[in-house]
Write a protein that binds this DNA or RNA. Structure first.
Lengths: 140, 140
DNA sequence: TATTGTTATACTCTATAACTATA
DNA sequence: TATAGTTATAGAGTATAACAATA
């Protein structure tokens, strides 16, 4: 059996690649808007799909409710997000982006598209498709 | 332009996949030996390539010297690693695995091989090769 | 002056338990 | 009793600056 190399070990490679791409894209939402990763994801969900409760964000984004709770508070402080207590179930709040939050979303969405295109440009279409499908398969 | 989806965004997919595989393989080195990620990587380097200094581990493993310093101390406390002050340059130490450390390395290496094979089994050879190459390309 | 390695510190991220208010 | 959301806390990971000892 041949020498096992860390450089081929999938958890190692995934971790390195994820760290690098995270650091790169973080520059967009952190430097420009002082946001953390979970905050950006929530802005994405609200911007892309509109008003919803924290519970819906949790299930859509595979995020724990404690992460969402803290990120929602942070976004509210930045005036990117507004809450509206539900009248039918007073435990829930409807969350939505403010005008400012929507503007941030549009800019972030564009940056994400650009990032994705630049990224895809490093690979053939087949390679990119296989990579994407493989990563999706892994997260199921 | 079509709706941008987080589910296709590469930094998101990479992060999710990396987290999952990290959690899975962590079970091996953490539960069995109480080790953290950097500690396992250092055990790997010393087990695979033999005695070397912290500086060499840093460059081989793309790890910062502060991470290595702390992980080396932790491995020493667990009696998995021994240090020997260099006589030619008294700033350096030669690091190597103890007998116990070597035994741990062999078990971890086997677990890593098994993990890798199980992982590869989810894909065709072509897919696996493309995935691996893509991830390597990303970390360059 | 530069390098090897250590220590201190702060921030980010993950995970879990305990809690409140409401259903 | 169960659910939506909050707060507290600890552990793990990342990043940087300052430092001691040595070259």
């Amino acid at each position: 059996m041949p020498g096992f190399e860390l450089e081929n070990f999938i958890p190692y490679l995934l971790n390195r690649a994820a760290e690098k791409s995270s650091r790169e894209f973080q520059a967009v939402y952190k430097q420009e808007y002082g946001m953390l990763r979970t905050e950006w994801r929530i802005v994405f969900h609200l911007g892309r799909y509109g008003e919803m409760t924290a519970r819906e964000i949790c299930s859509r984004g595979a995020l724990h409710k404690t992460k969402v709770s803290r990120a929602v508070s942070a976004l509210e402080e930045k005036r990117f997000l507004a809450r509206k207590r539900s009248e039918t179930d007073r435990r829930e709040e409807y969350l939505s982006l403010t005008r400012q939050g929507k503007s941030v979303f549009r800019k972030l969405e564009n940056s994400a598209r650009e990032y994705q295109e630049r990224f895809a440009g490093n690979f053939t279409q087949d390679e990119f498709r296989i990579l994407t499908n493989a990563l999706k398969k892994l997260t199921e």
